[in-house]
Design a protein around this nucleic acid. Structure first.
Lengths: 254, 254
DNA sequence: GTAGTCAGATTGTCCGGACATTCAGATTGA
DNA sequence: TCAATCTGAATGTCCGGACAATCTGACTAC
């Protein structure tokens, strides 16, 4: 039987700045998250009860609860009635994000490069129109890109965007990722519907990715929605599985 | 320029039962979710302001806010300061879950079948020990299963579990999924770290899945954690990509 | 010694109110 | 006509309190 792993309550130096425009609960949650990230709050350690914590910080209990709740939602803390709130002891890094291949590669120190193959406006096919929620044959942007790392092709990305949202400059597309451009254009990315599969490379695909025909490819299709629920991007991507795989953290929703 | 899409406020029949042990905010959120699912609340429609809604239901505003917030977290609603709360207009079905292959197949009406190939206890390899956070060479359960749909093999699943958590009955494993067994054993699944990739099938893998050697396979590795952050399962799965792909919904965390 | 019971601690739920912040549209001014 | 300003409406933040539900550990009774 495993030991109950009782850890003493940790005393932290926490403080909030009431003159700051940053919400108090957010200030607190950031400090707590930093303490967890930094290791000051060790996995399994108790956080101390909410009421005492609120009193120590000069905050109300709802405010403290809001801060804690946001970290629970992120999967960093666990609350147990009658027991307390403790830090989860696992290698939870980041809960999960709308991953951007560009950012992923950059974070891995791979110095990604992008080659824009196509950047034009085309009439929407039935598939694209359905994904983006626009009329068939209406104009949409079409962008085809080849993403490279260390000079080697890694992925072939084909994206469609509804018109009027953003002007796609080829130079900017080669310098950064599509998601960054969209965010910079004031589009708030909210959710995405993804499908990940695999198949054998066609001769044309193999040629583009410097693979051989019939080689396994990792495929991903994605429709991205902004905060109003409007589809803002549809993409069909193929990846070289020897160079890239999808890694992410899932949280169970109850 | 797209039309602002003004939709009239929808009047719903909502009610709460104060004698029920179900929390009031949960009753409300369920009714709202049902209305969205059912189409009574159409995408883009406004929900009516929180204060008036609270008054109509005889609830306080924080309670109503808690109900709405839970649906916002699920990605079903969007709040806009100064405007109101509206239903997202997109084909958002399920935010995202810790998908279980068994449940996925059953939901698709595929009548899944499982064949347990191996159900034994083995010493943990370095890889398994690292994933589960146990000592190398310590005992772990090893389960190998073949999952079939319509008599055709779909996936080969190899899982490792730490000892003492659950007793793995081969009959039960063939009748349902591993996750259901774990939940039934009182284990609260909390999060998982996944990696999805692809590769060519080895001759042995091809044989198991009735594919040809060199055929593309979809691979998934997963470590699952319970609500205390302890690893409760590590699995290495291979799927036939012609029969299965991963579909899920991502939410952007801010 | 063992099982059941009880009390304390802690989070869960809910209330009612107050003020700040932001958005959209109407008004006003140049 | 167009831009800047104002106003109303709605959500965002925060407070202080009250009671309920649940878990842990200690106590008690057998």
């Amino acid at each position: 039987m495993p030991k109950p792993e009782v850890d003493p309550t940790v005393q932290l130096e926490l403080s909030v700045d009431r003159s700051s425009p940053v919400p108090l609960y957010f200030q607190l949650s950031q400090q707590l998250e930093a303490a967890i990230e930094h290791g000051t709050l060790t996995p399994g350690s108790l956080l101390g009860n909410e009421i005492e914590l609120a009193a120590r910080l000069g905050l109300s209990r709802p405010t403290v609860r809001q801060a804690i709740q946001s970290l629970v939602d992120k999967g960093l803390l666990v609350r147990r009635r009658g027991v307390g709130t403790q830090v989860v002891h696992s290698q939870v890094k980041r809960p999960l994000e709308l991953s951007s291949l560009y950012d992923d590669l950059e974070a891995a120190g791979q110095r990604p490069a992008t080659k824009v193959l196509v950047n034009t406006v085309v009439p929407a096919s039935a598939e694209v129109a359905a994904a983006l929620g626009v009329a068939e044959d209406s104009d949409v942007h079409r962008v085809e890109r080849l993403r490279l790392a260390h000079g080697e092709p890694m992925a072939y990305l084909c994206n469609f965007l509804p018109p009027g949202l953003i002007d796609l400059d080829t130079g900017q597309l080669e310098a950064t990722g599509l998601y960054r451009l969209m965010r910079a254009a004031g589009i708030t990315l909210h959710s995405a519907r993804q499908s990940i599969g695999a198949r054998a490379a066609t001769p044309a695909e193999a040629e583009r990715l410097a693979e051989e025909a019939g080689a396994p490819l990792l495929t991903m299709q994605r429709v991205t929605f902004d905060d109003t629920g409007r589809a803002v991007e549809y993409g069909t991507h193929t990846y070289r599985p020897t160079r890239y795989s999808f890694e992410f953290q899932l949280l169970v929703r109850t």
